[in-house]
Design a protein around this nucleic acid. Structure first.
Lengths: 128, 128
DNA sequence: GAAGTAATTCAACGACGGTTGAAGTATATC
DNA sequence: GATATACTTCAACCGTCGTTGAATTACTTC
């Protein structure tokens, strides 16, 4: 049942993470949470969304580990949401590692006329 | 026809950008392009995808400005693809700006029992 | 325990988008 | 000009996922 240890550059794993973020309403929720807003009702007011919709998107964000949930100590009917900062840090790290411009290698086409030229050149330069 | 100038923190605009990236095969293509692979045929071999599928995903990446296209000077049937480095840099900048952990504000619930407490506290501290 | 409130879960709908095979375009070669 | 090659475009299918309204859970108050 163990999955292969996914490298930080694993496209499938990164795509799954980005799917969670590629949604306008979820980004708006994250945006408000980062600004300190917390309860479902206030999110609903600010975003003009039905509470069940907010619940749905919050559960997606929660399953992705990006949002933490806390019940009110006085009245447990109220639930507060907050950004999971370590998850956010890791997200930035993974994203930055994948799309790091320093990873871009110079062109070396392996097929087509230029590929043939390159191969000839490489052989000429490094005949060994 | 001009769209409102979208701030770098505009959720809708960012979601559109992320939708392009939230796709495993497109990430694999980007990955290979960053490693210097260029022609459609080699992408097809490496990813075991039909050429028309690669074409499709490349067009999405091209429309997003992430990939540049060049025809071979000798034999124009061959087309080479390359990462658009400035676009990649801007992508990192926008992503980093939105998900910047420094943007996280301390909690200040505006409703619920804690919200009431906070409001009372704020009034007590700053009665003006 | 009954009623009320905050939030979640469920089931069904509908649209967006990735996939597929076939047709089409552009360019080169014979 | 006919054939071949590299790639793109088209049309159709189908699964996924966001949305919606209703039902349900969890908790508090009367």
């Amino acid at each position: 049942m163990k999955r292969a240890p996914s490298s930080p550059l694993d496209p499938a794993a990164l795509a799954d993470r980005l799917k969670v973020l590629a949604e306008p309403r979820r980004l708006r929720i994250l945006n408000l949470l980062m600004e300190g807003v917390q309860c479902n009702c206030e999110l609903g007011d600010a975003l003009e969304m039905a509470p069940n919709l907010i619940s749905h998107h919050l559960s997606v964000l929660r399953q992705a580990g990006l949002v933490d949930v806390t019940r009110d100590a006085v009245d447990a009917r109220w639930i507060y949401y907050a950004i999971n900062r370590p998850a956010l840090d890791e997200l930035n790290a993974v994203f930055g590692a994948f799309f790091d411009a320093a990873r871009i290698q110079p062109r070396h086409p392996a097929c087509g006329p230029q590929g043939a030229l390159v191969r000839v050149t490489e052989i000429a330069i490094a005949p060994k």
